[in-house]
Every structure is written in C-alpha cells, then in structure tokens.
C-alpha cells in the first residue's frame, strides 16, 4: 500500500522530533557514531597515505641495462625498440655514456669535476633506464632485457628488491585487514548504541501497536531518526578530518619535501562521502533491527 504524502511528512517530522525528545540518548548515539567515524576516517587516511608511500618507493625501482661497448647504433636501436614495445615496460630512456658521466659527476657534487678528463676515454657504457608497468614485474623484465646479445649486464638492485616487495605486500594486506576489521567493529558498536536508545522506547512502540499502528507506521519515524543520527554524527568527524588532513598536507608539503601526502582533493571528498554513506546506512540498520524486536505486540 502506498504511503500518503501527508503521512510521509508526518513520519519525517516525527523522526526529527524524536531526536529532540530523546535528547540524551540521541546525543549518546551521535557521539558513538562521531567517535567511531573519526577513528575509521583517520585510519583510512593513514592507509591511503601508506599505500601512496609504498607506491612512491616501488616506482623508484628502475632497471639499468648496459650495452656492450662494441654494440653499434643499429644494434642499440633494435634493443630499444624491442624494450619499448614490451607489454610490461612503462617507460624507457636511452642514456649514452656522455650523459652517464654527467649524471655520475653530478652525484659526486663538487668533487665530480675531477672526472671530466675521463670524457675522452669514457669507461661507462651506453645504457637504457627502464621502468616496468608494475614494479613487481621488474625482475622478469630485467631477465628478458639481459638475454639480448647487445646487452652486457643489467642492474636493478635485485638483492633488496625481493625484501622490499615482501614488506610492501605485507603492509598492504595488513592495512586492508585492519580497515575491514575496524569497519565491522564500528558498525557493530554504532548499531548497538542505537539499539540501546530504542530499547528504552519499548513501551512507546507497544502503545503505538495497541492503538492500531501498522508495523511500517511504527518503523518509518525510526528509519528517519536512524538516518539522522548517522548523518549528524558524521558531520563533526568529517569536518575535523577534512580540516586536519588539509593542514597536515600543507605542513608536510612545506617541511618534508621528499615525501608528499596524497593530495586532499579529491581523496578527502571520496573518503568523506564514503564515511557519510556508511554512517547513514548503519544508523538506519541499527534502528530498524532494534524496532523489529518490539513490533510483535
């Protein structure tokens, strides 16, 4: 049976009024929502940034493939073409021995100039600097490049790479597990708090039923109330996290130049939207589950 519009208006109004009528209980529910969302939200920011850090580290992984000294331009060209067309290769840069020396000298700072006289008899090799599409594919790509006859050797920090990926994979799995666990815990805690507020209104529901209210008539205002508790409870943590993160981001940007946080926009809106949605849904879920128990009168 379709609900009449005035009844819908009535339910909405009652939902709002109930928040005020049950002042302290509503406050308690909203506080529980706010605290849990704050923890979940802060953790979400932490995880996103940890992933960002891991990505940054992993993306620094590159393969340096050195050509044989006697490899001529056409041999080098054909290797470069082959590497460029490889599915797992993101980016290739050709660096001849002159550039190699420049980079080397620059890395030595002011002492580097003494190596300038090596330029005539440059002992360095022409090289390819390769980045794999997926950093975890680095070793496989390096193997393939090394198999080319014009390549003398490849370097990609193989000794620490294996360990790095082990660590980063663990961190990712652990982070994911923690987020899921935290969300479950907060859903449980929030819906439980809302349950308590409705538990105290058992008599009220009983009277409604005795006066001839249908189940949906009893439920609807609680639906609105649950959604409102979720909504209002989410506002403070979302505002706090947004302001806090933006501040932290600019602070890090100024103070720690070698590592930047994930840009607030649009990440902050995505996480806020998600928190808000979860919060409202949990509010509704908690209220409906607890009302259901008392409807059998």
């Amino acid at each position: 049976m379709a609900i009449k519009r005035k009844t819908l208006t009535r339910h909405g109004r009652e939902g709002f009024k109930n928040i005020r009528r049950n002042g302290w209980m509503s406050f308690a529910s909203m506080s529980a929502v706010a605290i849990m969302l704050f923890v979940v939200g802060a953790f979400a920011f932490l995880i996103v940034n940890t992933n960002h850090l891991i990505d940054t580290i992993e993306n620094d992984v590159e393969i340096r493939a050195f050509f044989e000294h006697d490899a001529d331009a056409s041999e080098q060209e054909s290797v470069l073409e082959e590497v460029e067309s490889h599915d797992s290769v993101e980016n290739v840069v050709y660096r001849d021995r002159d550039e190699g020396l420049d980079v080397f000298m620059e890395s030595m700072g002011s002492d580097g100039e003494v190596f300038e006289n090596l330029r005539e008899e440059n002992p360095l090799n022409d090289a390819l600097i390769i980045q794999a599409t997926d950093p975890q594919m680095t070793a496989a790509v390096a193997e393939e490049v090394n198999a080319q006859s014009a390549i003398e050797s490849v370097e990609y920090g193989e000794s620490i790479l294996g360990q790095l990926f082990t660590v980063t994979n663990y961190v990712r799995i652990l982070g994911g597990a923690l987020v899921i666990g935290l969300i479950f815990t907060s859903v449980f805690l929030i819906s439980n708090t809302i349950k308590l507020t409705i538990l105290s209104r058992k008599d009220e529901i009983q009277i409604m039923k005795l006066v001839g209210a249908t189940n949906s008539f009893v439920r609807f205002p609680f639906f609105i109330e649950g959604a409102l508790i979720g909504l209002i409870g989410a506002i403070i943590p979302i505002a706090g996290l947004t302001v806090g993160y933006s501040y932290l981001y600019s602070f890090m940007y100024d103070q720690v130049p070698f590592f930047t946080f994930v840009e607030p926009n649009p990440m902050i809106w995505q996480i806020s939207g998600l928190l808000l949605l979860v919060s409202i849904l949990v509010g509704i879920f908690g209220s409906q589950m607890s009302v259901r128990k008392f409807l059998k009168v």
């Binding site: 009449k4 005035k6 009844t7 009535r10 409604m208 006066v211 001839g212 209210a213 249908t214 008539f217």
Partner: peptide, 9 residues
C-alpha cells in the same frame, strides 16, 4: 496519534 495512525486529514 490515534488519528495519525488512520491517516486522518
């Protein structure tokens, strides 16, 4: 309330 239940005007 008893009248709202029967969706009275």
């Amino acid at each position: 309330f008893a009248l709202e239940v029967i969706e009275e005007e």
